[in-house]
Design a protein around this nucleic acid. Structure first.
Lengths: 250, 250
DNA sequence: ACAAAAGTGTTCCTCTTACACCCATGA
DNA sequence: TCATGGGTGTAAGAGGAACACTTTTGT
């Protein structure tokens, strides 16, 4: 018999998705407006990460996918689970009341599983998301978010930075054809460093999974850059090959 | 208002902990016996990972800690959250009935958050765990486990291997004072590779956070080995310093 | 012709890898 | 004295870091 001192009532699980995009100059995150009535009758509007309670029939990746697709449409999405935020007090008072009334439930506690997503951001997507109630906000412009979503966002940013150093996810942000310079700028912004362009080119062009697209920029007032593509097929992470004691640094 | 087609009933969250130890020769995982009555009256006993539903008042790390401490006592534990197993069908039929009767609840679904833990295994701990109903089973001897615990175990093994390549967690397995050979054997077993002892020593001894303990083995029938210690203080993961485009290999 | 960004090579240094023998101890 | 595992050095190669100028295009 389980420990009789513990009770297991009224818990629910939600997903909250931090969706990142890159507009060529800065990282942006997808937020939605939340409107709610205070008991005083005053109406408040603030921003939150897209999220939802999970329903009985779906698993977490499906829920995260559903939530993200609603604002992003049928584009390809890179989606990963991060950590679970499970502090029993993470949602309470006004915030808990809002959830209960929004979903028509009577919960005393909500755990949330934070998801992390990357999409290719362009003007069409910005328009599409806005029509669905979403805003693509530059990371530097994000202010106070609803619930504990600032905390989730910070976790996601850390996750993004560490992912960039481990796997070639940069291509999830860029159009199919991209220039070396675009890629370099992206790394510089995400990792907050400056990179030597000669060394960067040398490294990038030595990778067997980055292929010349055989096309160039057109109509630019300078030497036109070549386009490259990322060949996912030839990027197969072979774990034996990667064996290095990487934690060992001078 | 939330989507009225979705329902949110009877969900609960559990934690399941994969606790690893190293006995000097092989990796072992901590399992517990589960006894249950079939409707036929037959009594079955099988093995499972230690786990528990989480109670209303605790967060996930506390629950995982509680579950692990029950079998391991007050030793230091390295504990991390892995992924959530959320397939709505992951527990059903007999297995779901067992959970409902064990905890005295009426759930239609249980999600589980898998945790990963490392402890320093020694004979005292083996005895302690056994008194509490736990068994330290060699990885190679693990057979069919209850619920979806084989799947969780496989995930944990993958996680262990990748963690070993990224962070110096090996010391969580070893006694405070250890020899270079012990460390090398551990890496060879976890990563399933052979390592050249000269190169390994050179690398390990060049690390500023591995310090000679100033003591040697005693009573061994060969040249006695020196002991070293891991200095957690001087291991400070400085992310700026680690900046390498590590995904770029070959 | 000029502004603007693309593209290009070399040197130095560090880290990784491959490889074979002597040493200290207890039995 | 022998069996056992501990401990040691060097050379060649690969990858990373630092560094400045020429090229191509549109205006």
């Amino acid at each position: 018999m389980g420990n009789p001192n513990l009770t297991y009532d009224n818990q629910a699980i939600s997903v909250d998705c931090t969706v990142f995009g890159f507009d060529g100059r800065a990282l942006r995150v997808l937020l939605i407006h939340r409107r709610r009535m205070l008991p005083s009758g005053e109406e408040l509007s603030d921003l939150k990460l897209p999220g939802s309670l999970i329903s009985d029939a779906e698993d977490l990746p499906s829920a995260a996918n559903r939530v993200t697709r609603e604002l992003v449409g049928s584009r390809s999405i890179y989606l990963k689970q991060m950590e679970v935020f499970s502090n029993p007090q993470r949602v309470q008072g006004q915030e808990l009341m809002w959830i209960n009334s929004y979903y028509g439930v009577a919960l005393s506690r909500v755990l949330t599983v934070a998801f992390f997503a990357l999409v290719k951001l362009d003007d069409r997507l910005i328009t599409y998301s806005r029509r669905k109630g979403g805003e693509w906000v530059e990371l530097g412009d994000v202010r106070r978010l609803a619930l504990d979503h600032n905390k989730i966002l910070v976790t996601a940013i850390d996750y993004l930075i560490s992912l960039f150093q481990q796997e070639p996810v940069a291509f999830e942000f860029l159009p199919r054809k991209f220039t070396v310079k675009q890629l370099q700028t992206l790394y510089e912004i995400v990792l907050d460093v400056g990179l030597d362009n000669r060394n960067f080119r040398k490294k990038i062009l030595s990778l067997e999974y980055i292929l010349p697209a055989g096309e160039c920029e057109e109509g630019v007032a300078h030497k036109p850059a070549q386009y490259y593509t990322f060949d996912r097929k030839s990027y197969k992470r072979d774990n034996k090959k990667i064996f290095k004691l990487n934690f060992v640094y001078k």
